[in-house]
Design a binder for these strands. Structure first.
Length: 107
DNA sequence: ACTATGACTCCCA
DNA sequence: GTGGGAGCCATAG
């Protein structure tokens, strides 16, 4: 596994249940601010349950793709409490990295 | 080394 | 809101 993939997975693992992050935000977080597409490639290869790749969405807040289907991705997110309207996740569900060391803000 | 591909994004009409 | 086009960068072949 490449070091790029490791970085993507490590950051993705830190997204809490009930929150989402964007491909672009992850790319930026790992020091590749233009690498959103590469992040998608890396996540697309993951099949491990340890990496909650269903919590990664597009910048426009539409859900995006998923190895087991978009339907499944939406279903899991809803189960986790993420509100989805007209195919887009609620802004309030966006994970903000700067809150990492604080208590989870109310959604 | 080079080309093609894609779980993306931005910009403009 | 929508659709097309270009730019982007890690991978695969």
């Amino acid at each position: 596994m490449s070091s790029f993939q490791k970085r993507v997975y490590n950051v993705t693992k830190r997204i809490p249940r009930g929150r989402v992050a964007t491909y672009a935000a992850i790319a930026h977080k790992i020091g590749a601010p233009q690498g959103a597409r590469a992040v998608g490639n890396a996540l697309g290869k993951n099949r491990s349950k340890d990496v909650p790749c269903h919590r990664v969405v597009r910048s426009d807040l539409s859900v995006g793709r998923y190895a087991w289907g978009t339907k499944k991705k939406i279903q899991i997110l809803k189960d986790e409490g993420v509100i989805i309207n007209a195919g887009k996740v609620n802004k309030k569900s966006l994970w903000r990295w700067q809150y990492l060391s604080r208590r989870l803000p109310q959604v």
